[in-house]
């Protein structure tokens, strides 16, 4: 029979320290330093406040807060519902099930578990960053060269089915599976190790999308180099 978790805890006789004073001192100092830091930042930088809201005047581009710009960036490359709702929901569900898939206790408490774990992390980060970035560039390039018009005319299902659903889904699933296969081939990865690859891949994509969405998108959500993004036009009145 399986023991319940209260019994399963790992308690070993080890080198211990009293919470008072050792831990409390660290917590106290950390709280003080962060309080001071927050005061300094808040004294130096004001929170943004623009003009009163008006529905007649759309800023171009209008952007979500930075921590959601990854989703807004993803929206540009596939169906809105897929990018904004389905993908993040599935990711959160997958993330919650990680411990139920990777159930070994190997490497608990050790950064990256092993030397291989570290190598896989670096490889997966490079793989995902490069691919994600290239795909964004490719999409921008194709769209600038009449991809949508071409798709509406020649693709079965027009500009919706393949460009907005099938191709993005195949790319997302395909590249993830490919990553797992590669790390299994090269490093003979076990469950923990391919999980590291997938998680690292996700984190890298998340960061790339956030950075591109924040610093490389200008008016019309067009792609720019970070140093040449034009200023947001504050009042873009389509009918005015």
């Amino acid at each position: 029979m399986r023991q319940d978790s209260v019994v399963r805890v790992d308690k070993r006789v080890e080198d211990t320290a009293m919470v008072w004073p050792h831990l409390l001192v660290i917590e106290f100092i950390a709280a003080m330093l962060w309080s001071i830091g927050l005061f300094v930042i808040s004294a130096a930088f004001n929170a943004p406040l623009q003009d009163h809201q008006t529905p007649d005047c759309t800023p171009n581009p209008s952007k979500a807060p930075w921590y959601l710009l990854n989703l807004q960036e993803l929206l540009l490359h596939m169906d809105k519902g897929l990018a904004g709702v389905v993908v993040p929901t599935l990711w959160l569900v997958f993330m919650a099930t990680i411990p139920y898939i990777d159930r070994s206790r190997e490497g608990v408490g050790i950064w990256f578990t092993s030397k291989n774990g570290l190598r896989i992390t670096i490889f997966a980060a490079a793989y995902a960053t490069l691919l994600c970035f290239s795909l964004i560039l490719l999409d921008a390039f194709l769209k600038a060269h009449g991809y949508i018009e071409f798709a509406s005319e020649y693709f079965p299902g027009g500009k919706q089915l393949l460009p907005n659903y099938v191709i993005p889904i195949v790319i997302m699933i395909g590249l993830s599976v490919l990553l797992v296969i590669i790390v299994q081939r090269i490093w003979d990865a076990n469950t923990r190790e391919w999980m590291i690859a997938i998680f690292t891949g996700f984190i890298s994509v998340y960061l790339v999308l956030t950075v591109v969405g924040t610093s490389m998108r200008g008016p019309g959500m067009d792609l720019f180099t970070p140093w040449s993004v034009p200023a947001t036009s504050q009042c873009y009145a389509p009918h005015g």
């Binding site: 623009q50 009163h52 809201q53 209008s62 519902g81």
Partner: peptide, 29 residues
Amino acid sequence: LSYTGYLLPWDQLSFWAVTVGYEIARATP
């Protein structure tokens, strides 16, 4: 929590940022 707080100042920035989220919510299958 962060996102719901973002709307509260009711300025151009917050209004249009939350509009982006609103459009995503409407696109839920």
